[in-house]
Amino acid sequence: MSQPESAVADSRAGDRARGSSQSGKESLSALAERHGLRRAIARPSLPVYLRQLWERRHFVLTYATSRNVSKYSDSMLGQLWQVLTPLLNAGVYYLMFGLILGQKKDITNYTAFLITGVFVYSYTQRSITGGAKSISGNLSLIRALHFPRAALPLAYTIQEFQQLAISMGVLAVIVLVTGEPLTWMWLLIPVVLLLQTIFNVGMSLLLARIGAFVRDMNQLLPFILRTWLYTSGVFYSIPAKMDGQPAWARILLEFNPPSVFIDLMRHLLLATYPRDLDKFGYPHSSLGQLWLYAAFWAAVALIGGFWYFWRAEERYGRG
C-alpha cells in the first residue's frame, strides 16, 4: 500500500477540494457546525462511554462465550478440556512442587494450598495476557465495526472468568477430597472473586492500551508475569518465608495484589491454613487487613485502568 511521495504532484491538476469551492468563503468546519455534524471520531465523555459499554453488554458476553467455545472446538474431547486443563495444571504443579521439591514442612495441606494459589494466580495472569492481546490481535475487528473498544479487554477477562468458574468447581472438589471441612467461610468466596475480577478488568484495560501501541510488550509480558508468580507466594507461605526478616518486607510481599487474593482465598477455603499460621506463630496480616488490601487494589486498578484506556479510545484503529 505504500505510495511514493512523488505521487503528490500527480493530482494537483485534478479538481480536488470541491467542497471549499462550493461553499465559497465559509470553511468546511463552519459548515459542519451549521448543519450540526459532529466529528466522526470524537472520544465520548466518560459517562457516555460507560453507557455505550453497557449497551454492548450482550456483545461482550456472547463474544467471551464464543471464544471459549471455539477454543476447544477442534479437539476430540471438546468442551471437556475446560475441566481437564485446570486439573492437569494442578497435577503438574503438585508433581513439581509437592513431590519433587518437597515444600511441605510449614503447611499441613500442601496440595490444596498449592492448587488454590495456582488457580487464583493464573486467573490474573491470563486476564493480563489476554488483555494485552485484546486490541493488537483484533485490529481487523476494530477497523470494521464501531463499538466502545473497552468491550474487547472486558470480554477477554469475562472469558477467563468463565474458565475460572469451572476451575473453582475442580478446586472445591480437590479441597474437600484432601480432608478440609466445608465451612460458612466458603460463602465469602464469591466476594473475593468479584474483587479479583474487578482488579483483573482494570489490569486488562491497562495492558490493552500498552499492548496496542508497544507491540514488544507481548514478548516481554511472559517474563514479567513469571517473576510476579514467584514473588506472589503461590508455592510457599509468605509469613513462613519472611520469618526473621524486617516486617516492612513481609508486608510489602503480602500487599502485592495476587498475594492478597491468594491469601484471602486460602483463609476462606482451607480451615488448616489459619491454624498453621497460628501454630508456627509467624507474624502475618490479619484477615481484615487482607480484605482492605483487596478492596484497595480493585478500586485502584479499575478506575486507573479504565481511565487510562478511555483516554486513547479514538486511536486504537490506527494500530
Binding site: 505521487a7 493530482s11 485534478g14 479538481d15 480536488r16 470541491r18
Partner: peptide, 11 residues
Amino acid sequence: IWLHKGQIKMD
C-alpha cells in the same frame, strides 16, 4: 470520486 494515490483526481 476518483481517488489516485491518496488524493482526489476527479469528483
